[in-house]
């Protein structure tokens, strides 16, 4: 039995590797075949002049610009909410927490990281119901609410990446400034964090990617199929992932479907660019900062 298994194993593993590569290649090929013809100037702005749309002077009705704008605005908002809290909590976990409180907190953060995104979205929606009741219907699902829920979704990743980054500092380096008389806080901000800037940045970029791709949270907290560019944070908005989802079931003709493909490609390009950026940050940022 064992001998037979040992003989079959390499072949099996080759098959798996080939199948995986084939699956990804098929996915990319299929998207490109369906969406590339739609990649032209009209894709983003439809009939509207690009400069008018970019300066928000005129609404775009048949282009992807509002969805792209919504995604970017939502991600920026969510990340700027989540990063300060996440990094601060990560610093606490790595440098201050100890004993049972550290165990308990890290268990809680693990649970938070594991909660399905739709449940986070649902609690965002529940919050909207509560707000709706107490503010007499003026607050409902909106861009700000989505950003809050998304911030909460990526919070545990930020905490964990900050914590592991700080805990990975060489003990020699960790104690040098302290023995020279630096305070704990000076040590954190002047030695530990700069030393781990690359990992920190990588973690933040990955959080951005996570926000950009998520569909489940936003579909409960304020994204809609057509809203144009929102003029305030308390408005509903469009987003690329939701556009892709919506088009997959509600397309009315081949042209709209092609736009769905194009939106999927656009989303994938954004996410993989962010991913490559995070990858490079973790490797290169340090040397770039040192030799600049």
């Amino acid at each position: 039995m064992g001998r037979l298994l040992a003989r079959l194993l390499p072949g099996f593993s080759w098959c798996c590797a080939l199948a995986l590569t084939a699956a990804v290649a098929t996915l990319v090929w299929f998207l490109l075949r369906g969406g590339l013809p739609a990649f032209n100037a009209d894709l983003l702005f439809g009939g509207t002049r690009a400069i008018d749309a970019l300066l928000l002077r005129r609404q775009v009705f048949d282009g992807l610009f509002p969805a792209l704008f919504g995604t970017v605005a939502m991600v920026l908002l969510a990340v700027s909410l989540a990063v300060p809290v996440g990094v601060a909590a990560g610093i606490y976990m790595a440098e201050y927490a100890g004993g049972w409180s550290k165990h308990l907190l890290s268990l809680v953060f693990d649970v938070l990281a594991g909660i399905p995104s739709i449940v986070i979205g649902l609690s965002g929606f529940a919050l909207a119901i509560v707000l709706h009741r107490s503010f007499d219907g003026r607050l409902g699902p909106c861009l700000l609410l989505s950003a809050l829920a998304l911030a909460f979704l990526v919070l545990p990743y930020l905490v964990r990446s900050t914590q592991t980054a700080l805990e990975g500092v060489d003990p020699l380096l960790r104690h040098t400034a302290l023995t020279l008389g630096a305070s704990k806080l000076q040590n954190i901000f002047l030695v530990l964090l700069p030393n781990r800037l690359a990992d920190l940045t990588g973690g933040i970029i990955l959080a951005v990617g996570r926000c950009a791709e998520d569909t489940a949270v936003i579909m409960l907290t304020g994204v809609v199929a057509s809203a144009g560019v929102p003029d305030s944070m308390l408005r509903q908005y469009e987003a690329l992932p939701f556009y892709v989802y919506y088009m997959s079931s509600q397309y009315t003709g081949p042209e709209e479907l092609q736009k769905g493909y194009a939106a999927a490609i656009l989303l994938m390009i954004i996410c993989s660019l962010l991913f490559v950026l995070a990858f490079m940050a973790q490797r290169r940022l340090k040397s770039w900062l040192l030799y600049r």
Partner: peptide
């Protein structure tokens, strides 16, 4: 292959679903 696997983690779920729906 490891890099390909890492790249796969960055593909949005909705894109997987979209491709599966039509393929």
């Amino acid at each position: 292959l490891l890099n390909l696997v890492r790249f796969m983690t960055s593909i949005p779920t909705v894109v997987y679903g979209f491709v599966a729906l039509f393929l």
